[in-house]
Simulated scan of single mutants.
Amino acid sequence: MRIAIADDDGESLVCLENIIAGMGHISVRFNTGDRLTAALSRETFDLVMLDWNIAGRNGLQIVQWMKQTLDNPPPVIVLTGRTTKRDITEALNGGADDYITKPEEDNVIAARIAAVLRRTSASASMEKTAAFGGYRLDRMAQSIRHAGHDITLTAKEFELADLLFRHRDRTLSRAYIMETIWRTSADLATRTLDMHISRVRSKLALKPENGFRIFTVFGYGYRLETIEDASDMSPSQ
């Protein structure tokens, strides 16, 4: 998972980074609300953790901006030293998914992160097999069957296809895909991602007549689109 953490306290950021790394996730830090919103406009995250009193836009302003601006806003955990019931109610009613008061034990923060991700993540309760239209994915065997045929994929190609199907109709940034599949920066291997996207598109025949297509969002990333009434469409559409 890719988690944005926003706080103008450097020690708090380091603490959160260590907790998130210990859970096996990736964190991206921001020290102002404005930098966070700029990143949210162009990047993909599975969770946002932000301090209420962060410099620039405050936490609640950011939550409200996310709900009004982003097509698929990620869940939000607000961290703050405010402890009154009124503050907690205001944060949750404002759109936050959880509220953590500072200071808090690392294991409690980790448990709260895991709980929010379980509730909101598309991959939280993945079954061993899954069907998306005419495509059947076997996650144990890392194989895909379509139109009566088994499709041979490399491990990374399967992971990429599975990620796209789980997040179908959601635009994923290059950085999100690279860090989720390859655990590396998008800047390091742009050609690797483009090559794998091309192979997945070709091997799975992801085109309108089969119900899905991979759409390139130039300068941002990719989206696997669901095509309605695919049987009524000609191959040229």
Rank of each mutant, 00 (worst) to 15 (best):
I62G: 06
K207L: 13
D187L: 11
D46I: 05
R191M: 13
R35A: 15
R145K: 12
V116W: 05
V217E: 01
D229I: 04
L193Y: 04
P74F: 09
A161R: 10
L92C: 11
Y176F: 15
I5S: 11
N58H: 13
R139H: 15
N107C: 06
G59S: 11
S198C: 01
I5Y: 09
I151D: 02
V76E: 03
T154A: 10
D51L: 07
L16H: 04
M126D: 12
V14C: 05
G22I: 12
G24T: 08
N31W: 02
A114I: 02
A147L: 14
V108R: 14
G33R: 00
D169A: 12
G134H: 06
R166C: 13
S234H: 10
R29A: 15
D169E: 13
D8E: 02
V78K: 10
A21G: 05
A114M: 11
H167I: 00
W182P: 01
L153R: 02
L164E: 08
E228V: 07
E209L: 11
S12T: 04
A141T: 07
T80K: 06
R191L: 11
N31D: 14
G56S: 10
K207I: 12
S198K: 15
S143P: 03
P235I: 11
L117D: 03
G221I: 04
L193N: 05
D46H: 02
V116M: 08
S185M: 02
D150Y: 01
V14I: 15
Q64L: 07
V200W: 07
V76Q: 01
A147I: 03
S123P: 03
K156F: 12
A147C: 09
F165S: 13
M1Y: 05
A6W: 06
G33K: 03
L164C: 10
R118I: 07
L60Q: 07
T154Y: 07
L153S: 04
Y222K: 12
L79M: 15
I177T: 07
M126A: 14
A39C: 06
G22P: 03
L117T: 05
D229L: 09
G59M: 09
T190W: 08
Q68V: 03
I197K: 02
M66N: 00
